[in-house]
Simulated assay, not measured.
Amino acid sequence: MPIITAPQEFNVEDLYVDLGAILGTPLYLKCEGFNFAGSVKLKAAAEMVGAAERDGLLTPGKTIVESSSGNLGIALSIIAAAKGHRFLCITDPRCNPASLRLMRALGTEVRVVATQDANGGFLESRIRYVRDLCASGDRYVWLNQYGNAGNWRAHYAGTAPAIASRFPDLEVLFVGAGTTGTLMGCARWFREHRRPVTIVAVDAVGSVTFGGIPERRMVPGLGTSTRPELVDESFVDDVVHVPETDTIRTVHRLSSRGFLFGGSTGTVVSGAARWLEEKYPGERPVAVAIAPDLGERYLDSIYDETWLRTHFGPIVADLDLPAADIQEITVP
């Protein structure tokens, strides 16, 4: 077992779940949630903060500011606490309550922007708030995960070569599209190393990242209401858009087998399974999907019956949910 002095020094890189028995589809799931941040975002956060320090942008007295729907905010909270930096996270009402509590527990100041942008989301409003904040003085350092090359470089240096080493015959790689840092880093690595791997981006229905029509989205994580600066479609072979109802069905299907994953993972797995069934019917290609997060911080949303009934009423009947109330009993 490793001995570490900082939380960002630990990450499980080589854990995969064989989903064949659960889905009936050949798919290995790379689990990125086994670190102190609970998600793949720890890699990008560490790289972006490290680069800002090396470049002299992040110095004592400065405050990191970033827009996040949850996972990156938690990752930056951990690293800021470990390094002694102040961190201000700008989020929106769709951020999970558990994520808000985690960031605050780590010493982060959190501000919630409740103004929707023209596409019905909050991303543009959050970014506008960050820009105005930075224009008000030089104490703030905006890492800008949507355009920071450190976001994709973290995965170019670590995630992609780790997958290639474990699966030298890899044929298809499925990567969720949020900021597209993980997607772009992995896609660039396989392209530049001339590996014949089909790169499939998995996005949420209602996201505009790949030219989709903006729609309401309730599950935080994947998808955007403003196209990220990092995205370069020339590195992507195909795109799958997943309705949030399919995301929810998939996470509950996995949890019924003991695997509690987050909403982003449910989207990626759902899109990957559908794509493989359509493109490789009856075949068994070597396929890997990246699971960005685990499910504990979604207990107040996609695993909560009241939340599901409020936002996705008809789908609840399709899910094998336990009794809504926890019973208190008296033993004589």
Results as ranks from 00 to 15, higher is better:
residue 90 I to P: 10
residue 64 I to H: 09
residue 99 S to T: 06
residue 247 T to V: 15
residue 20 G to E: 11
residue 287 A to R: 10
residue 66 E to A: 13
residue 18 D to H: 09
residue 177 A to N: 07
residue 326 I to M: 13
residue 193 H to Y: 07
residue 7 P to I: 12
residue 227 R to T: 08
residue 121 G to S: 10
residue 161 P to K: 02
residue 247 T to Y: 03
residue 93 P to H: 04
residue 320 D to Q: 13
residue 168 P to W: 14
residue 139 R to Y: 09
residue 187 A to N: 02
residue 328 E to R: 11
residue 264 S to R: 00
residue 62 K to H: 15
residue 133 L to E: 08
residue 75 A to H: 00
residue 107 G to Q: 10
residue 79 I to W: 08
residue 60 P to R: 08
residue 135 A to K: 14
residue 295 G to Y: 02
residue 229 E to P: 00
residue 156 Y to L: 05
residue 35 N to P: 02
residue 152 W to R: 04
residue 220 P to G: 07
residue 50 G to M: 14
residue 15 L to G: 06
residue 290 I to V: 15
residue 264 S to F: 00
residue 295 G to D: 04
residue 296 E to K: 03
residue 175 V to P: 01
residue 237 D to A: 04
residue 20 G to M: 01
residue 201 A to L: 03
residue 244 E to L: 05
residue 115 T to G: 07
residue 115 T to Y: 08
residue 9 E to R: 04
residue 260 L to R: 06
residue 213 I to M: 13
residue 227 R to H: 01
residue 21 A to H: 12
residue 60 P to I: 06
residue 298 Y to K: 02
residue 115 T to K: 15
residue 311 H to M: 03
residue 58 L to E: 13
residue 183 L to T: 00
residue 131 R to M: 10
residue 60 P to F: 05
residue 98 A to V: 10
residue 274 R to D: 11
residue 317 A to W: 01
residue 138 D to V: 05
residue 250 T to V: 00
residue 269 V to S: 10
residue 158 G to T: 13
residue 143 L to G: 03
residue 159 T to F: 00
residue 232 D to Q: 12
residue 139 R to P: 06
residue 298 Y to T: 01
residue 35 N to S: 04
residue 329 I to Y: 13
residue 147 G to W: 02
residue 169 D to H: 14
residue 78 I to K: 10
residue 178 G to W: 04
residue 274 R to K: 13
residue 24 G to M: 01
residue 35 N to I: 00
residue 196 P to L: 09
residue 52 A to Y: 13
residue 266 G to K: 03
residue 180 T to I: 05
residue 291 A to R: 00
residue 165 S to G: 05
residue 175 V to D: 00
residue 206 G to Y: 03
residue 186 C to T: 02
residue 195 R to Q: 14
residue 108 T to D: 12
residue 44 A to K: 01
residue 99 S to V: 03
residue 61 G to Q: 09
residue 312 F to K: 10
residue 112 V to H: 06
residue 230 L to M: 01
residue 214 P to K: 06
residue 213 I to P: 01
residue 235 F to E: 02
residue 313 G to S: 15
residue 316 V to H: 06
residue 76 L to E: 06
residue 234 S to M: 05
residue 204 A to I: 01
residue 296 E to L: 08
residue 126 R to Q: 15
residue 61 G to H: 02
residue 204 A to H: 00
residue 25 T to H: 01
residue 327 Q to D: 10
